[in-house]
Write a protein that binds this DNA or RNA. Structure first.
Lengths: 144, 144
DNA sequence: ATAGTTTACGATAATTTTGTCCGGAATTAA
DNA sequence: TTAATTCCGGACAAAATTATCGTAAACTAT
């Protein structure tokens, strides 16, 4: 479904968000300790999410990653997926054809339109804020 | 969603099925010509689908691949996916955690249970026969 | 038997994805 | 200014996936 890079990215952002709720910046090693992800690789991924303006970074002592509190409710899971994996989850034909549409459907097209729309709707309506609050309340877990 | 290997496998089986409807065996080069897939790789994949008893193969002149007509309505897309990609599409946590359940859900768990169930239902109820007939009738397309 | 056809299979190669390492740049604080 | 901290970015390495090739094995028909 998602690449590993994307999964690491989502987890990292959710963890950073839980800390941003309390106004705290977090360092990369703190992030990966709490998500079970490889440090250097996660750093790269966060780097690209910084460029996509999803998260802020600061170098130096007391530096780290942080998400503006106003943004927490605006960032959707779909934003992260789009930044890392692109739109392929939604757009790409499930059998890999370049041309596949209602007019010229591949054998699986009709079935997958439905599933992909549901997936898109889910990703586009789930905010980082929702997930972070869930984690803080102990209802959702970032490790396993 | 699916690996390339799995996509090639599904396409190949559908094409073989369209020919099996008419009692014809098909050779590997015929398969890939009609699916746009790489020959040697597709051959490997079909080899493993033979072991999973999804398709039959015959060496020698007039050999090739064929699916028993009674089986056409019994083989589901899920059988092919299971044989090649395994159950990960349904089972695996979307964020990659080993432990992720209703009791201890990852942040995305609840959303994805729904989507994965829908996906499973779709794959388990779509038969190769349905897709092959659709292709024969010119309603569904195996290239693009 | 023999020649021709076709899949099976192991070795190998190319590509993509995942992951590491390290020096440099930015920042802070003393 | 200096030293410590932290992210950044490029080179590199490992692993997984995708893909090719050549030979062997199975089969058919003559």
């Amino acid at each position: 479904m998602f690449s590993k890079a994307c999964k690491y990215g989502i987890k990292a952002i959710i963890y950073i968000a839980t800390q941003s709720l309390e106004g705290k910046r977090v360092k990369i090693n703190d992030v990966v300790d709490n998500c079970g992800s490889p440090e250097a690789f996660t750093g790269k991924i966060l780097g690209s999410l910084v460029k996509y303006d999803i998260v802020h970074s600061h170098t130096g002592p007391n530096g780290g990653f942080q998400i503006e509190s106003k943004k927490l409710k605006r960032i959707k899971v779909s934003d992260i997926v789009l930044a890392i994996d692109g739109a392929s989850v939604y757009n790409e034909c499930s059998l890999g054809f370049g041309i596949c549409s209602n007019d010229r459907p591949c054998p699986m097209h009709t079935s997958f339109v439905k599933i992909k729309n549901e997936l898109r709707r889910t990703l586009e309506t789930t905010t980082i804020y929702d997930l972070a609050v869930g984690c803080k309340n102990g209802l959702l877990f970032l490790t396993g």
